[in-house]
Design a binder for these strands. Structure first.
Lengths: 122, 122
DNA sequence: CGTCAGTGACTACACCTGTAGTTTAATCGA
DNA sequence: TCGATTAAACTACAGGTGTAGTCACTGACG
């Protein structure tokens, strides 16, 4: 069971998944594109992530370099799994069906998914 | 924007979506199949849901009857939307692709989804 | 009529989250 | 060398969440 990552923490992780290692200041700069957070806020989030061993720290003189310890893919698999389990009884079909019925799927989406499934069957 | 429903509250909602109206005790009994919560806990959750106007209350003598005010379908659409937006940039394909790659889709799942999509295109 | 079981209302409380401010220690530039 | 800068560490604090406990009332039962 991978440690829980909160929404705010997730935004920080996205930055680190894109590029790492980074210093706290660098992370804050990049996160600033999305969120209007102070440097301190980002540092707090990094500390919490480090405390949970979701990011690793490496000393670089007076500062730290932060890197993800959890892979984005593994994380996404975990949360998706959890999501589908909790809300759709663990079955992906009802989820897709639901999105379809709610008109959340474009013709484009449908085409892409079909293609993907065709690939999978090989 | 529908009011936020927490995880614990969601378990209570599932019971009410299955059958309503119910008294607090009845809800607690049914929830007990899933969660090991005391009656008081369930009552607290019902109060919070009522305060958020996610369930409605109807007086029945000395007790209340609780019913959902939000439809399950609408709720699922909302959270699914939100989930896909936050984690997969709003595209459903990457989510399905991800679950597929992570071997979370059985051959059976694939067949069902294909069938569903075929239906959709009509 | 008095007691008790059931019910909603109110209170509790620790932990998580979002969002920082403050303190302290190290470093770099003049 | 000394002050200005910068970074990490520690502290803060309100609101949400999980998980109840307690209180006060009321109707049913003996």
């Amino acid at each position: 069971m991978t440690e829980r990552i909160s929404d705010a923490e997730h935004a920080v992780m996205e930055v680190l998944w894109k590029r790492a290692p980074l210093t706290a200041t660098e992370v804050a700069d990049r996160v600033a594109d999305e969120k209007d957070w102070s440097l301190q806020t980002v540092k707090t989030l990094l500390s919490r992530l480090a405390a949970k061993a979701v990011v690793g720290t490496e000393r670089d003189g007076r500062r730290f370099l932060y890197s993800p310890l959890v892979e984005r893919d593994a994380y996404l698999t975990g949360v998706s799994r959890n999501f589908v389990d909790r809300l759709f009884g663990g079955k992906v079909m009802p989820l897709v069906a639901h999105l379809a019925e709610a008109d959340e799927l474009s013709a484009e989406d449908i085409r892409e998914i079909e293609e993907l499934l065709r690939e999978l069957k090989k």
